[in-house]
Amino acid sequence: MALPIHLAYTHWETLHPPLLETGSYAVDPEPGGPPWRQCDEVEAAERGWFITFGELPDGPSGMVLLAPGDVRGTKLIIERAAGYCLGIDGRDGPNVACRGCDRPVGTRIDDCGYWQVVRLGPDAVVRLPSPPERPVMDWPELLATGALWHRLSEFRDIPAGVALAQVVVAAGGAPVEVAPGPVVELLGRALAALLPAGGGAKRLDLAGPGLGEPGADLVLVPIHPQTGDMWQPSAGAVPVPMDAALWAELAFPPPRTRLPMVGGLPAGVERDDPLPRRPSHPFQPSREAFRYTLARMPAVREPWLKAIFDRC
C-alpha cells in the first residue's frame, strides 16, 4: 500500500493503532531512525526539508514497514527496547533480531505517541515467490467495497492538518471561501484564521469518485490508498490531496438512524436515536501536522507563507 500521509504525525502520550493494515506493507523512501544529525540548509532541502526542526534522521532509507502482528521469526533485543512510558520507541536503533541467527533486522515502535509499526532494514528483506499481491482497485471498486472507510476517531485532526497545509499552499495567499457542509466544519475556522478575508476568494469544495465535480477553484480529492495517486478532476479546478479515509468521511457521512418517539412528543416528531455526541470544543486540525507538511513544501520559503508558519 502507499505510505500513509500521516506517517510522522502523532498525539503525545496516546496509544496509537498500527500504522498499516494487516496483510499489507509499505516502503519508506526516506532515511529513518538514528543516527540523528544536523543538516545545513542546502543539504536539508536536498532531502526535502525546506525548514528544519533540528536534527534529521540519518538511518537507512527504503525500509519496509509492516504491522507488528504480521512479523514472524523475530525477537526483541532487550537491551535496545527502551521507550518513554508504555512501549518501545526505537531510540537506540534496531531492536528486533532474527530468531535464527540473532542478526538485527529492524525496529519495532509501539510506545505512546507513535503509530505502531515494525521497520525492517532493506538489507534484511528478501523477496520470495508468493501468492499474487492484492490487485490495485480502481476508484469505483474502492467505493463499492468500502475500502476507503476506516475509523479515524480522535486521530482525524492529523490528516486534517495535512490537508489544511495543502489548501493554504494551493490558495497562494488568497482568501478562501469554503463551501457549506462538512468541509467548512473541518477547515473553515482554521482557514479564516490563517488567510486574509476580502474579494477574489477562491472557492473550496469536495470532489472525487462518486461525488462529481462542483463549480470550485480548489477541490479536496482523495489519495488512492494503494498507489498514492491523487484523483484528478477534469473540469479545471486545482486538486488538493487528502487522506482517503478522511475524504470518504466527508463525502459520504454515515446516515443517522431516526426512530419515531413513542409518547411524550406530538405525533410525527422524530429524534435521533442515539443522540449524537456533542464535541467538548470546536474541532481544530493538528498544528503539528500542519507545520510538518509546510516544512516539506518549497513554497514555505515564500515570505507570506513563512509568516504563517512562524506564527503557528
Rank of each mutant, 00 (worst) to 15 (best):
M1I: 09
A207D: 07
P159K: 09
V27Q: 04
Y9I: 13
E41H: 10
M297W: 10
L220Q: 04
D110G: 07
P57R: 10
E55F: 12
T145R: 13
L259I: 14
I223M: 12
T14Q: 14
W231F: 05
H11I: 12
T107H: 10
V176M: 02
R258Q: 14
A295V: 08
I158A: 01
G121Q: 15
L250T: 04
A201Q: 00
G93P: 09
D58Y: 12
P255F: 02
D217L: 00
G23L: 02
L275H: 13
A174K: 05
A295E: 04
Q226R: 08
F283N: 00
E43F: 03
S24P: 00
A216E: 04
P4M: 07
L305G: 00
D138Q: 02
P279T: 03
V117P: 07
L19G: 09
P180M: 10
M1T: 12
R311G: 03
R287H: 11
F309H: 01
P131V: 01
G23T: 00
G33M: 11
S153C: 06
L195H: 05
E141V: 03
G161D: 06
P233Y: 03
D273M: 10
P68T: 02
T257H: 13
R258W: 12
G100E: 14
R134M: 05
E249W: 12
G228F: 07
R99V: 12
R278K: 15
F283E: 02
R37D: 15
D58P: 00
F309E: 05
W36G: 11
L164E: 08
R151I: 07
Q166Y: 10
A171E: 05
L218I: 02
E249K: 08
I88W: 13
F252C: 04
A8Q: 13
G215L: 09
M1P: 13
G48A: 05
L211E: 06
M1D: 11
H224N: 07
G32W: 14
D102A: 11
P104E: 03
E288D: 15
H6D: 13
L15Q: 15
A295W: 09
G59S: 06
L152R: 06
D157N: 09
A147V: 09
L143Y: 12
A201D: 01
P104D: 03
P31F: 11
P94S: 13
A179S: 13
S24A: 04
E133F: 06
L204K: 09
D89H: 06
D123F: 05
L143T: 02
G23V: 06
P279F: 06
Q284K: 12
P303A: 00
L66A: 03
E43T: 11
P266C: 08
P276M: 08
A197I: 01
Y9G: 15
G83N: 08
G83M: 13
P180S: 14
I109F: 06
E288F: 10
L259Q: 12
D111K: 11
G62Y: 03
R134H: 09
V176R: 05
M63H: 10
L7H: 11
R189W: 02
A299W: 04
F53D: 14
E154R: 14
M137E: 14
Q232E: 13
P209T: 08
P180G: 12
E302A: 04
A147W: 04
E141R: 14
P140K: 05
L66W: 01
P214E: 01
